[in-house]
Amino acid sequence: MTASNPLTTAKKSFEFYSRLNLTLLTGLKAHDLAEMAAILRQVQGSVIYHHTHHFLVQHQHLSPEPPNDFAYWIRNILLEERLGEELAAIDVMRFSTIRDLRDAIVAVIENFIERTGNVRAAPAGQEFHFMRSVSFVMPTGLRAANLLEFRDALMQVSRGSIGYHMFDARLRLERDDNDFAMWLQEELGEDQLAAALRNLDPYTQTEHGLRRRMLGLINRRLES
């Protein structure tokens, strides 16, 4: 179904939430790749989420986005450039659950250990410390009932709100889709716009760039 009018009113308004993260320390640390793989297998999903997403929160000015923490440690501390690159290149968008993402990360590391027999240890004091993120989700008070209102709200919402609806909804809450695309399709019948938003890779751009692209797509639709 494609909406004929961009001012179609939704039965159910989109409610914008914001997300704030608190970091917890697990007390677990890895000295080498074998320990890293073993710990990765047993930790909670929120640990995997933390180390693949916190950089996006803490270094939002960096462009292009840096790799996940595992890749960073392996490349910069263990000095394994190739493996670091392989891990950085894991396409997080391919996965719909944290479990699948974890399996992919562990498989790349274990495969490398098997191939090379690598047992190089990190220098003392530079071990990998495992942490996890606890997310606090709260309504921002902003709602949208049509595409115009949605565009206006998207211009105002915090970085945490975009992160929540784009990253967390899909991967962490396992909703199969990001919240924006889902609402645009289901409530407004904006199939093409939803598909375009679904295809944006939030992991390869800054929050600023992501917001600008989403607004560009919506504005084009509003002008059509």
Binding site: L22, G45, S46, R132, V134, S135, F136, M138, R172
Partner: peptide, 21 residues
């Protein structure tokens, strides 16, 4: 200040990963 307040809120939900406020 934000982190301290989140820690205070975490006390009531210590086993949760995603906390709805």
């Amino acid at each position: 200040m934000r982190d301290y307040m989140l820690a205070f809120l975490f006390l009531a939900n210590i086993n949760e990963d995603v906390i709805k406020l």
